[in-house]
Design a protein around this nucleic acid. Structure first.
Lengths: 249, 249
DNA sequence: GCGATCGTGTAACAGTTTGTAACAAACCGG
DNA sequence: CCGGTTTGTTACAAACTGTTACACGATCGC
C-alpha cells in the first residue's frame, strides 16, 4: 500500500536546506517532491493514523471521510487539483482520505512544514487563511446538512462544483462529476436513491440534463441558484428579515 | 506540534507595552479588559459584520448561529465560560452570536491580537490548536447532522454537555441545560417536538430523568454512550470493520 | 391577583425521505 | 463484440420526522 513511486527527478539538494529557494506559499513546499500515483480507491491515510504528511492534489479527486458504526459514511470534503490536505494539524488525522478514480498527489512531511514555518514566518498567515476557509466551508456544509431539503442540497452541491470548475478554467455548462451517486449521497447526507430521484426531478424541470453517469449539463444557472435556499438576494438586511420571520413563526 | 520557538529570543524584549506582562496564552490577552454584561438574547455580532474583536466568555452561554432563507436557523456551537470566540479570523464574522440568558464577556481587538502575535510568537501554535479543535468539533457535528437519527443526536449532545460540565468541575449526574428546546433543536438539526419526544423516550427507557425545563439527570451514563452511534468500542479496527460492513450492504 | 405571553409537552395527521426490490444502463474484461 | 458486474433508475411501502393543534405551567407586567 501507499508506495511512493518517484517518477520525477529525485534528491536534489536534500538535507540542510529542505528547499533550494525560499518558499513564498505552501504550494512551493511541494515543487520538488516526487509525484505519487494513486489508483482508484487507494487510501492516502486513515482516521487515527499518525499525521506525518501533508498532501497536494495534482490531478484526480480525493475524498475525505469519516465512518461511524454500521458502516455509515460521511464525506466531509472533495479535493481537486491544487488543493492541500492536512492543514488542520493534529497529531493524528481526523478523517480518512482515498482517491476517487486514478489520481496523483505530492507529499511533504510535517517536519519539513514545521522547519519551513520557522524559516519563513510568512507561511503562518497562509496556514491561518486556509484553515479559516476550511472552517467557513464546513459551516456552510453544516447548514446544508442541518436545514436544507434534498433539492436544495443537490443544487447547492452542483453550484459549488460549477464554481470550482469555472475557477479551474472550465467553460460552458457541462459539469463533470468524477464521484459516484453514493459519494454524492454520503457528502450530502442523503441516500443514493434520493440523489437519483432529485436529479431526475431537476432534469424534468428543465434545470439540467444528465449526460451519462458523470456529466450533467446545467441549463438554467439562475434557477439552480434560487433553489439553493441560501437567500443571497436579501444581502444586507438578511439577518433582520430572518429574525423577524423567526419571531413571527 | 508546530512550535516556532527559535523566533522567541529575537522579539523577546520589545518596547511596545500593550500588556503589562508577556502573554503566555490567548486567555492572557483578556486579563485587563473590562467585563461586559449581556442580557438575555443580546447580540455580540452578526454574520457579515466587520470582524473587529475576539471575545472570551466569563459566564453564561453564548450561541453561535447562521440564518438562511425562511428564517431557518442553524446553531453551530454553544460557548461557555472560558471559551474564546473569533479565532477563525476572516475579515467579516462567519456567523452571528448572542447570549442565552444573561452572560458576561470580555473583548480584545483584532489589532491587539495581531500585535501580540508578533510580539509573542508562542501564541501562534495556540491559535492553530484552537482552530484545529474547532475543525474537529465541526466535523463531528457534520457526522451527527448527516447520518445520526434523533436519539443518537440527543445522546451525543447530552454526553458532550456532561463531559464539559465535568471538565468545569461539576459533579454527579445532574446536567444543567441553559438553552431552550428550540436552541437544542436548531443545534441538532431537529424540530422542537422531536427533541421533546426523544427526551421523553429516553426518560421512559430509564436512561435519564427530566427535572424541570433546564435540568436533566443522567441515570445510565453507559447506556447513553452506547446510543451515540459513535462506535468507540471497536477502536483500532474500526475502519476495517466499517469498510467491510459497507461493502456488504 | 390576573390575563397575556412564552416555553413546553402531547397527540393526530401529513409529508418527506428512506428502504426494498426490480429493472435498466453503463462499464469491464476477455 | 459479448456476458457479467457494477452502477444508476424507478416504483411502492414503511419509517421517521415535521406539521398542526391544543393544553398546561411558569413568568411577566399591569
Amino acid at each position: 500500500m501507499l508506495q511512493a513511486r518517484s517518477i520525477h527527478l529525485v534528491v536534489d539538494n536534500r538535507d540542510g536546506v529542505a528547499l533550494g529557494v525560499q518558499p513564498t506559499s505552501l504550494s512551493d513546499l511541494f515543487v520538488r517532491q516526487p509525484v505519487e500515483q494513486l489508483s482508484a480507491g487507494q487510501a492516502l491515510f486513515f482516521e487515527g493514523d499518525a499525521a506525518r504528511h501533508l498532501f497536494r492534489v495534482i490531478s484526480g479527486t480525493i475524498r475525505i471521510f469519516k465512518i461511524i458504526s454500521d458502516g455509515r459514511r460521511v464525506i466531509t470534503r472533495f479535493l481537486h487539483a491544487g488543493d492541500i490536505i492536512g492543514v488542520s494539524l493534529k497529531d493524528v488525522y481526523l478523517n480518512s482520505a482515498d482517491a476517487i478514480g486514478d489520481a496523483c498527489v505530492q507529499r511533504v512531511s510535517r517536519k519539513t512544514l514545521e522547519q519551513e514555518l520557522v524559516r519563513t514566518p510568512e507561511l503562518g498567515p497562509e496556514m491561518f487563511a486556509r484553515m479559516c476557509d476550511e472552517l467557513a466551508a464546513q459551516q456552510d456544509q453544516m447548514v446544508l446538512l442541518s436545514r436544507k431539503n434534498a433539492e436544495e442540497r443537490l443544487c447547492t452541491f452542483l453550484r459549488a462544483e460549477m464554481r470550482r470548475a469555472a475557477a479551474n478554467g472550465a467553460i460552458g455548462a457541462m459539469l463533470e462529476l468524477p464521484m459516484t451517486r453514493l459519494d454524492v449521497a454520503d457528502y450530502l447526507g442523503l441516500t443514493i436513491e434520493t440523489v437519483s430521484r432529485t436529479l431526475t426531478k431537476l432534469a424534468n424541470k428543465g434545470i439540467l440534463s444528465i449526460s451519462g453517469r458523470h456529466v450533467v449539463r446545467i441549463i438554467r444557472q439562475a434557477a439552480l441558484a434560487q433553489l439553493c435556499g441560501d437567500d443571497d438576494e436579501y444581502a444586507g438586511e438578511r439577518n433582520m428579515v430572518a429574525c423577524w420571520a423567526r419571531q413571527h413563526h
